[in-house]
């Protein structure tokens, strides 16, 4: 079975995506993301290998141990307020960005980033067309 280090897990779902036996369950509400590792008897350690933070370890089965579970509140977008990602993921992204880049936009959800990009790229055109119509 899998042991989880909750201090390392960032809630990214890699493990759940790659598990060939669908033994890692995910539930997501508007508020939080929950991941539960079912008591797994497989000799497989794909999830361990593909965890970005090395938060997982393959350990011998222990019927008495509870199934590991973690939950992450989702961080809210600075612009629209919608909750969109576990905060540890965003911190990891922020740390990984090339040093030359700003990083505060990480706290905007992707939909708002797209909107901002659309408004930025069209601003000149929109202004010119508005002028023409007035």
């Amino acid at each position: 079975m899998i042991r989880v280090d909750p201090r390392l897990c960032i809630g990214c779902l890699s493990c759940s995506n790659v598990c060939p036996s669908q033994n890692i369950l995910r539930t997501e509400t508007a508020e939080e993301r929950r991941i539960r590792w079912k008591r797994c008897r497989e000799e497989c350690d794909l999830c361990v290998e593909l965890c970005p933070t090395e938060a997982l370890t393959l350990v011998p089965i222990d019927e008495s141990a509870p199934e590991p579970e973690v939950s992450f509140p989702l961080a809210g977008c600075r612009i629209c307020g919608r909750r969109y990602a576990p905060e540890p993921m965003l911190r990891r992204v922020e740390a990984a960005l090339p040093k030359s880049q700003t990083s505060e936009w990480v706290w905007d959800c992707p939909a708002c980033r797209r909107r901002a990009e659309a408004e930025r790229t069209t601003a000149e055109t929109v202004a010119a067309r508005r002028r023409r119509r007035v």
Binding site: L13, P52, L90, V93, A96, P110, R113
Partner: peptide, 15 residues
């Protein structure tokens, strides 16, 4: 790809 989603959160343009 493991589908971790870090790239989606790392794209400044959300694409």
């Amino acid at each position: 790809c493991t589908g971790c989603g870090l790239c989606s959160l790392a794209c400044p343009f959300g694409v």
